[in-house]
Amino acid sequence: MAAFRGPRVWLWRWRRNPLRRRVDAVEGWAVLATWALIVLTGVLVGLASTHSVEQGLARERAEWRPVTALVVEDAPGTAGSEKVWAKVRWSAADGTRHTGQARVDSGSTAGTSATVWTDPQGRLVTEPATESEARLRAALVGALAGASAATVPYVGWRLLRGRLERRRMEEWDEAWERFDPMWGRNTR
């Protein structure tokens, strides 16, 4: 199909041309505005998401604390293999006693100590991400959020382009209706 189009002319939508319709100029400006919006939206949303995730993970590192807990019942498995879930008991910073499920060394017997992480309310949480893990996680979330947000202007452009294409075809139909009767005339 490209062989029938002829040579590519740069910025043709903005050049003076008797064949250029208003729809072509509108489409040219819409392409320019859409790409600007895609870049701007993607970058701003990506940076905001990255900053938000970094703040949340930094807050977790600052607030979550390791606590020594005691295994309440024997953990399944043999000693020295992987971590398994077991029931543990610990005391919160305010002195209240809590029990819950945590990952401990397999084969741990009742009364064995294990380190668990708790939030300021004394609830069990996972170990917080290190600074490098937090930066990577924030960068990945920011990139995904930015790319997702950038699709909104793109989808809007595709919808507008479909409408402009329909309008262009309507103008072609109108032009053919005006000039088609002339093709059948004899020019002798």
Rank of each mutant, 00 (worst) to 15 (best):
T126L: 07
A75V: 07
L57T: 12
V155A: 14
T96V: 02
G122V: 05
G107F: 00
G146I: 09
E60P: 00
E174W: 05
N186T: 10
E174H: 06
P7C: 04
A114Y: 06
E165I: 10
A110L: 05
A175Y: 06
P7T: 11
M1G: 10
V43T: 14
T34H: 07
G80V: 06
E27G: 13
R15D: 03
D180F: 05
P181C: 08
R15S: 07
V31C: 03
M182G: 13
K87R: 15
Y154I: 15
A33Q: 04
W35V: 14
V26H: 01
G6D: 05
R167P: 03
G6N: 03
P181Y: 05
R158I: 12
A145S: 10
Q101K: 07
G142C: 04
L136C: 00
G184C: 04
L164R: 01
Q121S: 09
L32R: 10
V152I: 14
T68C: 03
V23A: 15
E174Q: 12
L37T: 03
W85S: 13
R20W: 00
V141C: 01
A69L: 02
Q101I: 12
D173Y: 10
L164V: 05
M169A: 14
Q121W: 01
A48M: 07
T68M: 08
A114L: 04
T68Q: 07
R13V: 10
Y154M: 13
D180E: 08
V155T: 13
G111C: 06
M182L: 15
A58T: 14
A93I: 03
T151M: 12
P128I: 00
L47E: 14
G111S: 12
A33G: 13
W90K: 01
P18L: 03
G42W: 02
K87P: 02
P153W: 08
R178D: 03
L70T: 05
R185V: 07
D94N: 12
D173A: 14
E177D: 15
S91V: 11
Q101F: 11
P120I: 04
G146A: 06
G28I: 08
L57G: 04
R135C: 02
T109K: 09
R61S: 07
E54A: 13
E82K: 10
P120Y: 06
L159V: 15
R20C: 02
R166Q: 08
L136I: 03
E174G: 09
R188S: 11
N186D: 09
F4M: 09
G162S: 15
S91N: 05
V9E: 10
E165S: 11
R168Q: 13
D105N: 11
T41H: 03
R167D: 08
A25V: 11
T187R: 15
L47S: 04
R5W: 09
R185M: 08
L159K: 15
R13L: 11
A150M: 14
V88Q: 01
V39C: 13
V104Q: 02
V88W: 00
E60M: 10
S132E: 14
G100M: 02
E60Q: 11
E60C: 01
R168V: 09
S49K: 04
W12V: 06
A3M: 12
G162C: 03
G142N: 04
A139V: 11
V104W: 00
